[in-house]
Amino acid sequence: MIEISKLNAWFDDNHVLKDVDISVPANGSFGLVGESGSGKSTVLRTVTGLVDDWEGTITVKGKKLGPKRDKDFYRLAQMVFQDPFGSLHPRHTIDRILTEPVNIHGLGNSDARVVEALTQVGLDNAFRFRYPHQLSGGQRQRVAIARALILEPKILLLDEPTSALDVSIQAEVLNLLGRLRRDLGLTYIMVSHDLAVVAHMCDDIAIMNHGRIVERATAEQLAEGTLEHPYSQQLYKAAGGYDRAVVDTFVDWD
């Protein structure tokens, strides 16, 4: 479904992605893990057309992407951002937020589509005419997911979709994303700093550091803890909680 090869990207003189290769089958779920500045979000932003200066090939559903993304691309792939407080227009009602993409793409029948999208993310119709500030963080993230789903895409690009949420709400949103992938046959690329979230959600995982993929693993390999690269081992250990002796073994990777 998504083939990325030899992807390089720059922010001015800063070389932020270095030869990134990713391949995600249809209905697959691919996880990118790394710390801040590793380039994990930049991969998603490049695919979705938010980064201008890049080289390499990105092929989505058999079609090679050029410098610009057309409307067809956005019907196929939608992105969900990290911060549900920053990604919804504060002065638009949920109804307007959800109707806008329908109108842009001229799909029509927006009324029924809005109701369906809200149902898909488990929000009842009462939320339709509220404003974002009247919603909790988890509810807002559901709206952001509904806005992505309303165009009936086949691909969701998820950039830290639960890291701003409490753990109990995170569990609900992760379950929702899992269910949507099963029911609608979606393909995911999910970015997170949390190894456990990615291990839970994804089949294939890549660990990034300084713009490079340093290691690839399957969810099974993560479960067994058989990571080889010292950087990934360090991330894996860090996910286990605080242990004074383990901290002493950490090295800086900058």
């Binding site: 753990v167 109990s168 569990a171 899992g178 456990a196 979230v197 291990a199 839970h200 099974e220």
Partner: peptide, 20 residues
């Protein structure tokens, strides 16, 4: 208990997390 259970784990299990 609910807070502990709803954390995703690295056990290769992709089934739904228990919610609170």
């Amino acid at each position: 208990k609910g807070l502990l259970n709803c954390l995703p784990k690295m056990d290769g299990d992709h089934s739904d997390l228990p919610t609170l």
